Simulated assay, not measured.
Amino acid sequence: MMKECNNLCDVKSCFLCSRVIADWLPAVAQKKRNFQLKKGDQLFMETETVSGIFFVFSGTIKVHKKWDNEKELIIRFAKPGDVIGHLGLGKNPTYPVSATALEQANVCFIDLEFFRSSLTVNPGLTYQMMDFFASELQESHERMRNLAHMPVKARIATALLSLRSQFGTDASGAIDLDISRQDIASYSGTTYETLFKVFTEFTKAGKLSANGKRINVLDTSFLQLVVTDDNRKT
């Protein structure tokens, strides 16, 4: 269970603080609430009433949604500086997704009333939010198209390339994120069993290697070819 903590946020690096005018920062410091999450803690659940917006200060949080008889589809991964919970700003005051910590994480919470005031006072923030919404909508449309039309091997290859692009690599060359096979399957829009078969095939062919929850892409060109070839077939 997440716990409230004081002074975890530096009031300058999150999505909100980095985009408001300097005179507004004291108000943010007064209104914000900080929470610390352990791995597996939920920030909020799908269908829960929206209370405010969260900004990630440290750690990684997966944003996910129920899909096909209680299966899970991971929509995206939120990293330091990202905003979560904005999808609850629409007419329906409930979160359409859930958010769960993949590792220890610290977040900053702003209630809806103060966030709306921040948008009114800070036109730069409002513009950046519009740009953020537009970009996320484009990415969402692309992901839905991929899930509907892209073969499973291509979806898995796309997911691995996306994870490496988002998180970079560690000293060993592995994707710099401890992520379970189930979460990779959920991000690829497939089952654990199917992911296991494809991983085994790619590993035996020398295209991937794994050490615990760290995945090393050994042949980037191969994964890119899987994506482009399967796209041509659809």
Rank of each mutant, 00 (worst) to 15 (best):
N106G: 12
L208R: 02
L87D: 15
S162M: 09
M2H: 12
K12C: 06
K207C: 09
K91C: 07
V227K: 01
V107C: 06
Q30F: 11
S186L: 05
F133G: 13
C14Y: 09
V50P: 04
P93D: 01
P26E: 07
F54C: 04
L208F: 02
K31M: 14
A99E: 00
I179M: 04
E70H: 13
L102T: 00
I84M: 10
A205N: 06
Q166T: 14
V198D: 05
S209W: 07
N34M: 04
P26G: 08
E139N: 13
H86F: 10
T49L: 13
F77Y: 14
G173P: 04
K207I: 11
D178C: 12
T49E: 08
C17D: 04
F115S: 08
E4D: 07
L163C: 01
I156L: 03
D230P: 10
T158C: 02
L147K: 09
T190C: 15
N216A: 09
T200I: 07
M130E: 10
K39Y: 10
T47A: 06
N146R: 14
Y127C: 10
A105Y: 02
V56P: 00
D230K: 08
S13V: 03
D176Q: 03
I110P: 08
L25Y: 06
I61N: 02
V152P: 00
D176R: 05
D23A: 12
E72Y: 10
L160C: 01
F114H: 14
T47V: 05
F57P: 00
L163D: 02
E103M: 02
T234C: 15
D41G: 05
D183N: 10
F132H: 15
D229C: 07
L125M: 04
F35K: 07
N216L: 11
K71A: 11
G168D: 01
G40R: 07
R76N: 15
V28S: 12
D230E: 13
C5V: 15
A78K: 03
Q182C: 08
R181N: 11
A159F: 00
M150P: 03
L160Q: 01
D183Y: 04
D176F: 03
D183K: 05
E201H: 06
S165Q: 12
F133M: 14
M130T: 12
R116T: 12
E142V: 12
A205E: 05
L112V: 14
Q30W: 12
T169L: 11
D10M: 03
F202C: 03
G81T: 03
T220H: 11
V83S: 11
L195V: 06
R19V: 05
F115C: 10
T191A: 09
N92W: 10
R155E: 02
L160G: 00
A171S: 14
H64S: 08
N146T: 06
K12G: 09
A157T: 00
C17G: 06
